[in-house]
Nucleic acid binder design. Structure first.
Lengths: 175, 175
DNA sequence: GCGAATTGTCTTCCACGGAAGACAACTTAT
DNA sequence: ATAAGTTGTCTTCCGTGGAAGACAATTCGC
């Protein structure tokens, strides 16, 4: 099989543009490919429950928050890194399924409090087990030491990106 | 700042479901988050050229293939890991921009050969430089040794996923 | 208290990609 | 040569999420 698509790509660039260094793709390209493949690999339990991966994000965010399993739309938007518009639609779908409820906040009548129904808690508790088991299976090929190393390096990349001070092309965000 | 969203999530799960091991998220969750953040961080050069990230994928695939910078729709579909329908649409957009052309294959009249125009080559050559510079900047926080380690571990994960023999939940693909 | 600015959510419109089927062209067996 | 099956691409329909604006409720200054 074409067992390393990214290495091939790097090879092609090396031939066509020897003036450039394509090796960053060995990391960044692989991360992007991994994310795409992971989405597919981890989908089955959610698909079986007729849920989009994004919809499960809502359930998981509420469930891990602990009792009473509630968050406002804005809080969900922050935790899931999607816009509030996407939150509205995800919640709409889940309400249609009877997995969450939406009510007006007591503290601020603009706010909508989204909460897991008991059905929602039960489904989420079941799905998260399968989900984590699948994730564990995917990591089976790595030793404990490899895992710790990988965690550290990925966290380091996340920090670099979060700090935002990497953009070489003009985009100086001020400061 | 909430400098480690994933660590927080793992902490929440550990509190709510102490019977489960949420640590796979430290790797898999971070990869997914990184991919999302990378897409945003790497978009500016493409956005400036009025290109979607996916559209640049087409240009890059053709360019790194070398002269005469041509691939069929099917080949593009394989290299970009998207359906042929997506290829059709990406190519349509790029044709409208004058960056690629589409013609009937001489060898097989069903096949469509997509090729870079000279404008397309020029734009791609410019964008790939910016793009790789941005990727290099993102990796600036890692030592050479860290990079090699990260490449190795990501490649290992890719292999596990590609081989497909990880799915614990029933999904035995036969064999 | 009242009006202006702000905040939180929802709505509308749009872009993108997947799935499944349509269609044309190729291959093979006879 | 012809019919049946296969292959390569495009088309249609749908689902999902972003961006920008609408709207209601809150806060702040006076």
């Amino acid at each position: 099989m074409d067992d390393d698509r990214i290495a091939d790509i790097v090879g092609q660039w090396g031939r066509e543009r020897p003036d450039l260094d394509p090796t960053p793709l060995l990391i960044i390209g692989r991360i992007q490919q991994l994310a795409a493949v992971l989405d597919v690999a981890l989908r089955p339990p959610f698909a079986a429950a007729d849920l989009g991966n994004g919809d499960f994000d809502v359930l998981a965010a509420l469930r891990r928050e602990g009792e009473p399993y509630t968050l406002t739309a804005g809080q969900l938007s922050q935790r899931m890194l999607v816009t509030t518009g996407a939150v509205t639609k995800r919640v709409d779908r889940l309400i249609a399924r009877g997995l969450v409820s939406r009510s007006v906040s007591a503290a601020d009548a603009r706010g909508r409090v989204v909460g897991l129904t008991s059905t929602g808690v039960a489904l989420t508790d079941r799905l998260i087990e399968e989900h984590l088991a699948n994730e564990a299976a995917i990591l089976r090929g790595l030793t404990d030491s490899d895992r710790r190393t990988l965690e550290r390096l990925l966290a380091a990349m996340n920090r670099t990106l979060a700090s935002g001070d990497f953009e070489p092309e003009g985009g100086g965000h001020d400061g």
